[in-house]
Design a protein around this nucleic acid. Structure first.
Lengths: 340, 340
DNA sequence: CCTATATATGCTCTAGGTGAGCATATTGCC
DNA sequence: GGCAATATGCTCACCTAGAGCATATATAGG
């Protein structure tokens, strides 16, 4: 066996960099978007220029700043999306060459929405794009009323009993059906299932050889199942949300998303905004205090009514130290759930 | 602000696909390598051909099979490595064009080393490449005798007190010094620290403008600190090992690496081989049985001496169901450690 | 057969973490 | 003062994980 050299002709690939820039504004999780042609929603993205950028991260920082006037703090690589056809709908944005575009997605976190935005940039609420992901006020109606029925129909439409089983299992895991728990970090599984089932606008938009057997009048239109986005940007965003929700549990990234000084309720609401459900206040307080990540500043917040809350700040020493742990996030519990 | 189209001229980038194919053979974790020119060690890799490969994964499967005669089961994307200069040492393998090469790394797991290997392919023990990662027989001597002292020297060599602090903190976290615990999944942090400190061969090999102030005679030579690899392949491998070690805790991927039928001791030794330390037998058994991932086949294994062990197999139903959880992996405890 | 050795398996005890809820403390507002 | 709203303290039940003792069942050698 010989090691195959990387041939020079395998170079007609363009690399795009996509950024998911996430913040929490009060109790609303937001992501930085841009309005591209025809007012369509997109993640900020730009080309990777190997001449100018020593690393991907430098590239991302540079043009996000140029395009949106936001300068990034915490940044990590998300995933590299290279499937054929994924970029097709964005082809019009290319210079007309039908070349393959590979996207390297990046995730950035910031402590709050910046004010000085470029004109076409907007902060979008996550849950206007993924309405089924917000359980803070109980199970989202859209889930029970539209999505689950749609998924069930898709399951029933399987060609063989075996495929039906597979679909059922995937749905159970993704949506926490049939005794399985809702796992908030499975955002991408849910989106992909909905895409396959033809429940999101993008599925209909992208189909060419797709096997969506929905009657023409019943195709999802833009907006009914959350704001659609350009190309596969919504998939990238789903990946990012899942990543944040998952990572929260084992790394203290939440403190990249909060102001220098905060009350424990604000911290809790920030976490709740991200994971999409609420939890027990006293227990949250207990776990945060025990974590060693925060320390009280002697001061208290002057709020509206009620006893004033103590102000806290990140205990930088403790934080860097335990770069290990994350915050304890409980499980979402639905009404009649039996413990495993 | 306008969305910048991806320009067609940004295409002089080649994409290489790298694969880390990991198995456990008895109590030895192994990775599939190839011997490239001058007998140097490399991960199997090949070009991504946008004409032929609809997805990266298809590409990886295809040429790994062709190059090594191993067909992959479980596969996931690892990371995309795009730093300038990272591919320089492998430049000789390219067609002479000095173009930028971006590597998309993939991780594959299999239930045991395949027998039918192509001629230049070899199964390498992880710990011959990362000797400091194996704590199964206690703290690795190389760590206390060479690595920690080397790291300390590097810390002391900092130009400012602040930098010194930063280095000290990074070292504490990476190597679990000064009361911090050893976190087995931080393989990449450890490798990168050692690289920066000039403790691995690759650091010396790659340096051009590098600021390694080691006296010429004291530079690490190939092999003293584990087998070096081509290009940044050892970095990719470190990333992969960290990924497996971390993921083990929250997804049941261990069952991708074990034979269809096994004793609980074999399962335990498989996990121990991966995480690099041993744990309490009875507790491991308890947690596995409780997990619902396995079920006994009425049979027992006929072994050498001792009471015969019961044979188990993966409970496919239970596995798919709880696609959620992983196996409980305890923390490594060093002799005089105080609980947090 | 008996014993030593080796492994497997069962069980208990303790410490600590988590879920849930009651109780009390402070504030603004009427 | 009384009420509403929020913050904070505390307890109890349950579960899990770490550690170790005890017992069961095999092989090997006399």
């Amino acid at each position: 066996m010989t090691v195959t050299p990387v041939p020079a002709h395998a170079t007609n690939v363009a690399i795009a960099l996509n950024a998911v820039i996430a913040v929490v504004d009060g109790d609303r999780p937001k992501v930085l978007c841009v309005r591209s042609g025809e007012n369509k929603l997109a993640l900020p993205y730009g080309p990777f220029d190997p001449e100018r950028h020593r690393t991907f991260e430098i590239g991302v920082r540079e043009w996000v700043e140029r395009q949106t006037h936001v300068s990034l703090g915490y940044v990590e690589q998300l995933y590299t999306f290279g499937d054929k056809g994924r970029e097709a709908p964005a082809a019009a944005l290319l210079d007309g060459h039908g070349e393959r575009v590979v996207s390297v997605g990046y995730l950035a976190l910031a402590p709050g929405p910046a004010d000085l935005l470029a004109e076409d940039a907007v902060w979008m609420d996550w849950y206007s794009i993924f309405p089924w992901e917000d359980w803070r006020k109980g199970e989202p109606k859209i889930l029970r009323d539209q999505i689950i029925p749609g998924i069930c129909k898709w399951i029933d439409g399987s060609s063989t009993a075996e495929k039906k089983n597979t679909r059922q299992r995937r749905a159970n895991i993704a949506f926490g059906l049939d005794g399985f728990g809702w796992e908030e970090e499975r955002t991408i599984d849910r989106y992909e299932l909905m895409y396959e089932a033809g429940l999101v606008f993008e599925a209909w938009r992208d189909r060419k050889d797709a096997h969506l057997d929905l009657p023409a009048g019943k195709q999802p239109t833009a907006g009914t199942m959350g704001q659609p986005m350009i190309s596969d940007h919504r998939r990238i965003l789903a990946t990012a949300i899942g990543r944040i929700r998952g990572k929260l549990k084992y790394r203290p990234i939440i403190f990249e998303m909060i102001m220098p000084t905060f009350t424990l309720l604000q911290l809790q609401q920030t976490v709740e905004a991200i994971v999409g459900f609420e939890f027990h206040k006293q227990n949250f307080r207990r776990s945060v205090e025990k974590s060693g990540f925060v320390e009280g500043t002697g001061e208290t917040a002057q709020l509206q009514a009620g006893r004033p809350a103590g102000l806290f700040q990140v205990d930088r020493a403790g934080l860097k130290d335990r770069a290990a742990a994350g915050l304890a996030v409980p499980r979402l519990k639905r009404p009649g759930e039996t413990p495993a």
